[in-house]
Design a protein around this nucleic acid. Structure first.
Length: 375
RNA sequence: GGGGAGAUACCAAAGUGGCCAACUGGGGCAGACUGUAAAUCUGCUGUCGUAUGACUUCGUAGGUUCGAAUCCUGCUCUCCCCA
């Protein structure tokens, strides 16, 4: 269930509230990615109290391979297993169809995977992926799709999109036949595809909108295409997807990408960037990007970032964090991950505040310039 | 005092007449990373702003040779064994 709270007067940006049985989520929202049942490097305690994440991601493919469904069932799902009482969204494994393309084979029936862990063979179908996500028990579960690569020729993009649509209907059917295993409600989101082709995107958005599910996702973007192309596709799609339902832009993105997409009417985001890039020494701040490994920070004893409201951001110095990252110390990856996630959450909350105030557009224009700076 | 081994770039360590400005690690410098097979990957790392180019290098001083990090001689230093 989703309620719009406020529209920004001069853009498609809006604020809303998404209801789940594990709490309400104010949108726009950023969802930290916790693929394997862990937001890498960050404890649940810090995710809650320092970062204040209301919802995190898990991944069906990875959890299915390890620890496996039997363990998750015994643990009463992923919530019980990782002791996380707020909301969870699971990706279906559609992204792995893309990222593990060397290890899989697609058919109308579904996808045959070779496990990246032990090489064993596994089959995912639109139906089985619903069943797996029942066991995992996420509040929001995703349809099984093919995330097409970029570049992707028109013919392939079209046939892939059509198959994703057929897969969607099979998934919805399975979803409606079954029920949640642990007593809380689950919502099923379909995914728009169509690569970078406006007419395909339009077609896909129409198809998905007709399914009338509680929320809609936009997939297959930020896979290497220019940002402008991505924005164009988002605009096309959002024009068709119903206003009254949350729109989830999968896998995006940079702080700038997120503000631009909010401007276009997107409500939900997830991305590995704050955690992965954080582990690799990139820090995001409201003034721009810091590569903490750069020599110039070696003797900078000022706080990492006094603007970002997390304990670590103002407690530790840049020089110290650089030392930790350069030395390969685990704490460096942890601090950087917490800081970046807190920054992403701060950014979308700030966006929310400005939408409510009605000056989102002008605030965004200023931020987009600042955020892209290299410090 | 006697015998033996060795000195290579920031460190470690290959190379033992031309394919050597010198393998490979590490370190350092920089870059990449977008629904996570990533605490990962890529580039550079003697000097000359770039170079299929020039110049200076393999403890040190000489020598042999068309050509030496590689062979010979002296010197300096280090390590090991025996007294």
């Amino acid at each position: 269930m989703f309620e719009i709270q406020k529209y920004n007067p001069d853009s498609s940006a809006r604020t809303g509230i998404l209801h789940t049985d594990h709490g309400i989520i104010q949108t726009p929202v950023f969802m930290p990615v916790g693929t394997a049942g862990t937001v890498k490097g960050v404890q649940q305690r810090d995710l809650k109290h320092d970062i204040n994440a209301g919802i995190i991601l898990g991944n069906t493919y990875h959890l299915y391979l390890r620890p496996g469904m039997d363990i998750l069932r015994q643990a009463e799902g992923l919530h019980g297993f990782m002791n996380w009482d707020r909301a969870i969204l699971t990706d279906s494994g559609g992204y792995q169809v893309f990222s593990l393309s060397d290890n899989r084979k697609l058919t109308e029936e579904g996808a045959l995977f070779r496990s990246h862990i032990d090489g064993s063979s596994h089959k995912f179908t639109p139906e089985s992926v619903v069943d797996l996500q029942r066991v995992i028990g996420a509040d929001i579960i995703m349809a099984f799709d093919e995330c097409t690569p970029y570049p992707c020729d028109y013919a392939y993009a079209k046939s892939s999109m059509d198959m994703t649509h057929r897969w969607l209907d099979r998934g919805i059917k399975r979803f409606k036949q079954g029920e949640s295993m642990y007593g809380h409600r689950q919502q099923f989101f379909p995914i728009v595809q169509g690569s970078v082709y406006g007419d395909l995107r339009r077609q896909s958005a129409e198809y998905i909108a007709e399914r009338d599910m509680p929320g809609n996702a936009i997939g297959g973007l930020s896979v290497g295409e220019p940002a402008e192309m991505m924005y164009e596709m988002i605009a096309v799609v959002n024009d068709i997807l119903p206003d009254a339902k949350p729109r989830y832009l999968m896998g995006v993105g940079t702080p700038v990408n997120i503000l631009e997409a909010i401007d276009l009417g997107v409500d939900m985001f997830d991305c590995v960037m704050p955690t992965r890039n954080g582990r690799n020494g990139m820090l995001f701040t409201a003034d721009g990007i810091i590569n903490i490994k750069n020599l110039k920070w070696a003797d900078d004893f000022s706080p990492i970032d006094i603007n970002t409201p997390s304990d670590v951001s103002s407690y530790y110095s840049k020089a110290y964090l650089r030392h930790l990252v350069m030395s390969g110390e685990i704490l460096g990856a942890q601090i950087a991950s917490i800081h970046n996630l807190a920054f992403y959450l701060w950014l979308v909350n700030e966006a929310r505040g400005h939408i409510e105030k009605g000056d989102f557009r002008s605030w965004k224009e200023k931020m987009v310039v600042a955020l892209a700076q290299r410090l």
